[in-house]
Design a protein around this nucleic acid. Sequence first.
DNA 1: TTCGGAATAGGAATGGTTACTGATCGGAGA
DNA 2: TCTCCGATCAGTAACCATTCCTATTCCGAA
Lengths: 142, 142
Amino acid sequence: MSSVLEQDIREKFRRSGYTLTSQRRAVLEALKEAKGHPSAEDVYLIVKRKNPRVALGTVYQALSVLEEIGLVDSKHWSESPTRYDLNVEPHLDIRCARCGSVSEIPGVELGELEESIRDNTPYQVTRTTIAVEGLCPSCKGA
Amino acid sequence: MSSVLEQDIREKFRRSGYTLTSQRRAVLEALKEAKGHPSAEDVYLIVKRKNPRVALGTVYQALSVLEEIGLVDSKHWSESPTRYDLNVEPHLDIRCARCGSVSEIPGVELGELEESIRDNTPYQVTRTTIAVEGLCPSCKGA
DNA sequence: TTCGGAATAGGAATGGTTACTGATCGGAGA
DNA sequence: TCTCCGATCAGTAACCATTCCTATTCCGAA
């Protein structure tokens, strides 16, 4: 997992027309710090440690901008808030139905599925999200 | 799409220990009547036409029971209420991001994906849901 | 330095869903 | 058929993730 370069960040902001504010940078830092797949609330709490005046709404707005310009990916599992991820490459994540932890599933080929979907629907496909749920190794036994 | 047999319904209720009440039957009928992929609210409105006293909460509870015993499947797309479906076989559905209509995507092989997921994670996989979004033929042009 | 549009803080509002409570139902057993 | 008890229901309040609103602040271009 290569960390996003400073240069990439500036470039993506420049091209999008959005401004790279301190709050948006702080949200990126928080995502890096959280390392896993934090929710907006998780990110908010981390950002708040350094800047107690941030608003939760600002975090949501920042995450939405970051996602729009391709620096962040989001995934949603039912009965759980949306999770955010610095890994924007197509990949699978699994969420433990018991403890809520999320981790990556490596080595699954997704390209064929996307193609097969496009070949079988008259819709213009814009997004395909796969939500995998299960029990993590430590919750499995309990 | 074969309609679920009366016998199957009774059998699944009997085995589960839940009771087949008139409300739960009405929810099943409403799903059949709606034909597509109605939301809980849609189902509620249909049921209400014949029994104005039903409560929305009852519809939610009935749908949850029906899903648990395998008579109904549910799917969730972000920014949209959960949709329910009498087709409980694994299959793909695509939702139009513009008008919200949902339709089935036939002919996509999913078995390999499931298998590949199980082979690549230490989690015990319990559920894999795929949410495909796009623009339907009539919204594509607008 | 000034100005205007973008971004933010703070908090209220939204909307799908669940939880709660007292009334009602329905089926197993007498 | 009648009784009784747990399941289910109607009605409504609560929940919670997320969005919306508004006055204020920030920031960059001129």
